Simulated scan of single mutants.
Amino acid sequence: MKEIIKSLQNSKYFYIIISGMDGKYAYVNQHYADEFNYIHESFAGQPYYITMHEDDRYTCEEVSKKCFANPGKLFPAIIRKHDGKGGYIYTQWEYLAMFDDDGKPEGIFCLGYNITEYVADKQNLEGAMDKIERNSTLLTRIAFQQAHLIRAPLTNILALTAILNKRAGDDELRSLCEMILESALKLDYTVRNIVENINISEDETKD
């Protein structure tokens, strides 16, 4: 343990904390001290929870209990830390119970690092996936409306125009019928094309 602490004393990425059985900091490495010096200039002897979100104290307590119940095993925890600006950063930790030479509980060893960017990326990705899902639902609704609510009466117009064209008594009326029929066919093609493109987009999203 001492070798690990010594090797990571000057780490630029990892935090090291040792909390005593009294719930106070017994040791922090330089990286942790530098990162959170806006909370306190010297952590030794300070309560372990002064850097964290109030709700995460319960997480620390529960993980610590697991550590002492399972000596030698590491247990993970995500803890929110004050960022000095009214917000929080996210940190990932692994806890390990420490015992003295007589086997009595001595404290908790914690190794952690900043995962704020990872959490932000994950939240952005989840937001994007939710938006895609909402858009997919909207596209499905549009496709249904195009396929059923619009094409159904359009089909009737095509059929009626064809019948009227056959019964037309003069060339002028027949010409008008043909113009209506041509426009209706173009509209039907456009609607079918929209529906097909929506279905293709949904299939690509699923893949």
Rank of each mutant, 00 (worst) to 15 (best):
Y27C: 08
D83Y: 02
L154K: 00
T137Q: 14
F99K: 05
R192T: 13
T51E: 06
N29T: 13
A120K: 11
D55F: 05
P105H: 04
N29R: 13
N70P: 01
I5S: 08
T137S: 15
M52L: 13
L138P: 02
Y90E: 04
G169S: 11
L138C: 08
G107P: 01
S175P: 00
E3K: 13
D207K: 15
R134Y: 12
H148P: 00
N37M: 13
D207P: 00
I157T: 07
S136T: 11
G112I: 02
I79Y: 06
D101L: 11
L149H: 12
K65S: 12
G169T: 09
H40C: 14
E126Q: 15
K166S: 11
Y88E: 03
N135S: 12
S64Y: 02
C177V: 03
A120H: 06
T116I: 04
E61K: 11
I16D: 01
K65V: 11
Y189P: 00
R141A: 15
A168P: 03
E202I: 15
T190C: 09
L139N: 09
Y27L: 15
L139M: 14
E106L: 12
E178Y: 05
K81D: 08
Q46G: 05
I142N: 09
K66I: 00
Q92M: 08
K12D: 12
Y32K: 07
H148L: 08
F144L: 10
I157M: 11
A26T: 10
I18G: 00
K24I: 04
E196V: 13
K65M: 07
D56K: 06
I16G: 00
H40I: 10
K166V: 05
A147H: 05
E94T: 10
L138I: 04
A162D: 09
H148D: 06
T137M: 14
M1R: 08
Y88W: 12
I198Q: 02
E61C: 10
S7W: 02
I4P: 01
I194C: 07
M179R: 14
A143V: 04
N124Q: 15
K73G: 01
Y49W: 15
Y113K: 09
A147C: 05
K73L: 07
A120D: 13
L74S: 06
I39Q: 10
N199G: 12
Y113C: 10
Q92I: 03
E54A: 14
I157P: 00
E178F: 03
L185F: 12
G112D: 02
D22T: 06
T205D: 07
N29F: 14
K24D: 07
K12H: 07
A162G: 09
R167H: 13
E94C: 03
E35T: 15
I78M: 12
